[in-house]
Simulated assay, not measured.
Amino acid sequence: MKLIILKGGDDAVPHGHAWRRQAEPSRSAGALALSGDAAQSQWVLINVSPSVVHQLNTDARLLRHRGLADASARAVVLTDARVDHVTGLLSLRDGAPIHLYATPAVFEELTHSLPVLPVLQHYCGVHWHVIPVAGECRESVFRVEGQPTLEFTALATDGPVPPHASRAAAPATGETIALAVRDLVTGQRVFLVSGLSQAGPEATAWMQEADCLVVGDTPESPRPGRMAEVDAPAEIDVLGLMQGIHARRKVLMCRPEQQAPACAQVQRLEQCGVEVAADRMEIEL
């Protein structure tokens, strides 16, 4: 199983242009590309922003990952209906049909509150794959088109609901999810969650079993990787929780404002065994 961090390609090299220098990788928030294909020619995107789609179409460095930039079919798993996780779907409108995996709550938001799906149906079309996390069901196993060796498990979390959500005041089960991905061939496991403080008790065992933990950023919550001051113990606890997880790789997806002062923060993170995600970072398990 292979993961590629996509940050929108702030330092992207356009197709057909010479690769003149190795630029400093972007550390802005982004998405993940995941493949369990032995040839790594089929990929699934975990969330997608317009900048990530632009990167897939323009960044020449991604061409060495066969099928990532020129996929004949797109598979996308959404962990929530946040604007910066879903509006990239519109940028895929001129390509192949999209295989979209989301919970009933997220599909409802994308049909009514943020009507991305009705627009896409007039262009490339969308194949709906419902992840049945709703009501009293807080966990569900599913498979993704083109990834026969990967088993996905969605777990309901208590992350903040986007401001545009119709149920912002009383969120439903499945508004936000974490993802556990297991490679059925190698047994390796990845756990992806937007924020540790919102993960909930169900996720604890999954995190402890993970070979790789990827923690995203949740703007409405305390910053997961921020080097907190003494008067912000909650943020220290989040970092402490990451330190207590024994995954081989622990990766933090940060927003740019979390990087000041970047050197001091990265050094503290590295001391705790946590990597700060950079654009085009590759993780092979």
Score class of each variant (00 low, 15 high):
A81Y: 02
E136L: 08
V141K: 13
G174A: 05
V83C: 00
V119W: 02
Y101T: 05
A134L: 07
H85N: 08
T149M: 02
S113N: 14
F152P: 05
R82P: 00
G88Q: 06
I98P: 01
Q121N: 07
G146S: 06
D94C: 01
R66S: 08
G88L: 05
V86S: 06
R93P: 03
R66D: 06
P132N: 10
V116K: 05
L92D: 02
E136N: 12
A172W: 10
S72C: 07
V161I: 11
A134Y: 06
V83T: 12
P162N: 10
E145F: 03
V106M: 08
L89P: 04
E109I: 09
R74P: 00
P118T: 11
V86G: 01
T157V: 12
A96P: 15
A154H: 10
G95E: 09
D84F: 04
H129Q: 08
L78H: 02
R167G: 01
A81G: 05
G95M: 07
G146C: 03
E139M: 12
L89D: 03
P97G: 01
P163R: 15
W128I: 07
S140K: 04
V76H: 01
V77T: 07
Q147C: 01
S91W: 01
L90Y: 00
S166P: 02
G146A: 06
G174P: 07
H65E: 14
V161K: 04
G95K: 04
L110A: 04
G174T: 05
P160K: 06
D84V: 08
F142R: 13
A105I: 12
G135T: 07
V130N: 03
T173G: 05
D80A: 07
R66A: 09
H99N: 14
E109S: 13
H127A: 06
H129E: 08
P162T: 10
H164I: 13
A154R: 11
A71T: 08
G159R: 11
H112Y: 15
L92V: 07
H99I: 03
A73R: 15
H164L: 12
E109A: 13
E108N: 14
L114F: 14
L114G: 03
F142L: 11
P104K: 11
P160S: 11
Y101M: 06
L78G: 02
A156D: 15
V144G: 00
I98G: 02
V144I: 08
I98C: 03
D80S: 13
H122M: 11
H129I: 13
A169V: 07
H99D: 15
R82T: 00
I131N: 09
G125V: 04
R167Y: 10
E175M: 14
L92H: 03
T153H: 00
